[in-house]
Amino acid sequence: MNIFRLAGDMTHLASVLVLLLKIHTIKSCAGVSLKTQELYALVFACRYLDIFTNFVSLYNTVMKLIFLGSSFSIVWYMRYHKVVRRSYDKDQDTFRHYFLVLPCLVLALLINEKFTFKEVMWTFSLYLEAVAILPQLVLLQRTRNIDNLTGQYVFLLGAYRGLYILNWIYRYFTEPHFVHWITWISGLVQTLLYADFFYYYYQSWKNNQKLHLPA
């Protein structure tokens, strides 16, 4: 464990807690893409299949349970909670996220480190996580104005990915045979997707104006 990875995990944890807090306290999910949340729930479900068979550490297991629990409860809130679901903007959140799932699954079947069920599902979760933010970014562009909690949520998610890249650089130089192109490339693609959001987020912060993305 290195400081970049710990900071990355904590930032990732903060992002889901910010979102859960927003939904739970103000009972609203305005501006939040249910499609992205469903994709994240699928990502964690496919990535943590070995949660009970491959014990890494208490920290690892606890964090996996938190990510599984939070992502599924956010989806539950947005789908079934009688108050929250009313604030879900389903005719704006129209990204066909099934078009993301299938190509990621095919790619995972073609490019993976080992052709076993668990390894393919794990690789699928990496590719899917790389694109899972797209429906949310599209929704932000559509709804123009971003309430600061949703903006903070996306910002923290991007920061977690950036810190993970620093973690991989650190591990590459400190652990002799730590080379994982699949993880690195999908993580890099994911981080690049946030680049333009970061740019507009920074601009709005610098000019101290409401964040809005160009159409």
Binding site: N54, K64, E113, E119, T183
Partner: peptide
């Protein structure tokens, strides 16, 4: 084997 050392990440 080296594959599993990437599995210690979340």
């Amino acid at each position: 084997d080296d594959v599993d050392d990437a599995k210690d990440e979340l």
